[in-house]
Amino acid sequence: MIVAGCDVGSLTAEAVIMTNGSILGSEIIRVRPTAEQSAKDVMDKVLAKLHLSYDNIDYCVSTGYGRETIPFADSNVSEISCHGRGAQWLIPTIRTVIDVGGQDCKAIRVDERGLLEDFVMNDKCAAGTGRSLELMAEVLGVDITRLGPLSLEATSPVVITNQCSIFAEMEIMHYLCEERSIADVAAGINEAMARRVKMLVGKVGVKEDIGVTGGVSKNIGVVQYLEKMLGKKFVQFSEDPQIVGALGAAIFAAEKARESKP
């Protein structure tokens, strides 16, 4: 039995194909103008890679913002459940998943089955999301992927205090004018981001083990600051943490397929 999970988010879309409890393959793309198009493109890509077609898929679960508009999905599950489930499947001891995506940030607590125990999602503005990191990186004139590594080179990180993104940008420009090193400013940006995430995580309470997913999990700077603030080490995923949502969807798909075809 072959199942698929398809996660259409705000910045990227991912698809995971599984069979008999193991991952066959996965793909990540930047989103297209519509959720439907993103889903189709990412699925086409992964299916082509695996030399499969839509007919080979027994069950597909969609998730993410676009989850309700994907024509080839048999059902949909919230990305909160999927992230929890996917993360716990990869690392069975995981109880808290921190997912920092492009437009939101979630803290998810799961039980030993990978099912939701509690969750919290930010509902304010772009601050504390991947989108704000992108903007800050732009002000700094570096590629988003370099924010993390740069931050490791910092000797005396700046402190970004402003919460509003606009004022934070002004603060960054101020530091640049003062000729502070790009590395120190990058570290400050990551630290400020970690502070925002920590505030959210505190609302749901952390239980170990903890894993970080979503695009921002690739930023080593944010991750290290967050570990320091929470006083805990995060577990490492064997797979790209960005596909965890789609993976969770595929696991749900396998279950639903079994339920529907006893």
Partner: peptide, 26 residues
């Protein structure tokens, strides 16, 4: 958290759905 006129939204949909999934699983 909502505005008076909000009757639906993507974020709200995700939260409600996740909440219901949580209720079912627990």
């Amino acid at each position: 958290e909502r505005e008076y006129s909000t009757t639906s939204s993507g974020q709200m949909s995700t939260r409600i759905q996740a909440f219901l999934e949580m209720l079912k699983s627990q």
